[in-house]
Design a protein around this nucleic acid. Structure first.
Length: 255
DNA sequence: ATGGTGGGTTCCCCA
């Protein structure tokens, strides 16, 4: 089973690049973030024509998540249990075969100490509670998406410049660490210990060509899922050329 | 240290 996470920064704007890539790579499950469209306007047809089932949860202008899957998606999950009606659309999940998926768009947090930063930390606590209450770490679980957090300085092109900055600060790393303590493992690090593997580069200032990147898109796997995971790779080519997202897709294979 | 780009909608927000 080939699994993808990709923050596409608008599913409609990315279609010309997304659908040919799906035809080429042929993933089984695709977790998208920042779809930036309400459900009624989501472009379902191009994906259904490629043979995908969809679950979507979007809103106007911001956020939005979706899962595409060749096999049916059972037991869909939309948001946190304690979300209210106007909650930001950042969580979608479901079960494909014997694999439990949760696809997340973690809040960015803006700047350390801001209201948005506090919202991010609170949101991560709610994520922890949700996973702790409603998921069984003994199953094959894949929690993936745009976490907007680097695990450590290996994930940062210039750790001094980013020291205690947003996406790299101690409190958000600790909040993610608490989630990991439920028994999840950073799947990419099973296969790659070296620094310098990134998934996001700012669109501004030619960051990609300077390789000024961060690794903020992750696959958190339960032990049973990790056992089956034979590779995790970043498709940097999708950050190249005309009209890229600021994120590259990350591809994991479960045997 | 700053500003740079891009998407979606609005006369500016968010990343």
């Amino acid at each position: 089973m080939k699994i993808v996470t990709w923050n596409v920064n608008s599913v409609r704007a990315r279609l010309p690049r997304l659908t040919p890539w799906l035809e080429d790579v042929r993933p089984d499950v695709v977790c998208l973030q920042e779809t930036k469209v309400v459900d009624e306007l989501f472009p379902r047809e191009p994906f259904e024509e490629l043979g995908y089932n969809l679950v979507i949860s979007g809103q106007k202008s911001y956020n939005g998540v979706a899962i595409l899957s060749r096999e049916p998606i059972e037991n869909p999950v939309y948001g946190f249990p304690d979300d209210d009606e106007d909650a930001q659309k950042r969580v979608i999940g479901g079960v494909v075969g014997d694999v439990v998926f949760l696809n997340l768009y973690v809040p960015n947090g803006s700047t350390v100490g801001s209201d948005k930063y506090e919202f991010k930390l609170d949101w991560l606590e709610r994520l922890h509670r949700f996973l702790s209450d409603e998921y069984d770490i003994g199953e094959k679980i894949v929690v993936t998406g745009d976490f907007n957090i680097t695990f450590d300085d290996r994930d940062v092109h210039d750790p001094e410049r980013w020291h205690e900055k947003i996406l790299c600060s101690t409190l958000e790393r600790e909040a993610l660490g608490k989630v990991m303590d439920l028994g999840f493992i950073d799947a990419l690090r099973k296969h790659h210990e070296e620094p310098g593997i990134y998934t996001w580069w700012d669109l501004r200032g030619g960051s990609f060509w300077k390789d000024h990147g961060l690794r903020i898109d992750h696959f958190l796997m339960s032990p049973a899922a990790l056992e089956a995971c034979s590779s995790v790779t970043v498709d940097r080519d999708q950050r190249k050329g005309k009209g890229p997202s600021d994120h590259a897709p990350v591809v994991a294979v479960l045997d």
